[in-house]
Amino acid sequence: MDALVNKRIKQVLKGDQNAYADIVNLYQHKLYQVCFRMLGNKQEAEDIAQEAFIRAYINLHSYDQNRKFSTWLYRIGTNLCIDRIRKKKPDYYLDAEVAGTEGLDMYSQIAADEQSPEAAVEQMELQDRIQYEISRLPDKYRSVIVLKYIEELSLQEISEILDMPLGTVKTRIHRGREALRKQLNNL
């Protein structure tokens, strides 16, 4: 996959804009998912994920092809998400509630096809709740928890994406897990 990506990147750098469509196609779901989990809102997630792809395109000449493209792209995306979260901090709790509704809508669409209504309701509540709990995490824990448990990335990759030492990533994951644990206990 990396070979294909590097080939497409070279084509884009030579001026072939269409080659970028393949890159977007390969990474769109991963990046959108991170943005959705970070922001808890479909519209914002779409906006920020698109913005990340556009910034990556504009700055493609500065991407080091010896490193993983996904790491670089995630880095652009998470930075944009963190900026967005910090800008809207005052209505933090309001957003968390909106986030729950979004998850519900989305999941009910997926669930309707393959599950019984009862199971769908049960699942819906769980999905609703997961997004709500993620949204309640302070942003410095939210990003590491999302990258580790939703995207299933290695601690090393997370440290590159967030540009922080491995030790800091570990500490944040530990604290993030503890914060989540307390949230779940204080039901």
């Binding site: 779901h29 989990r37 994920a49």
Partner: peptide, 19 residues
């Protein structure tokens, strides 16, 4: 609990809109 989060996919028009 956190690992049981459903997979989320980008909307169908995503790629087209980026381009």
């Amino acid at each position: 609990f956190i690992k049981s989060a459903a997979h989320i996919t980008a909307p169908p028009s995503f790629e087209e809109q980026v381009i």
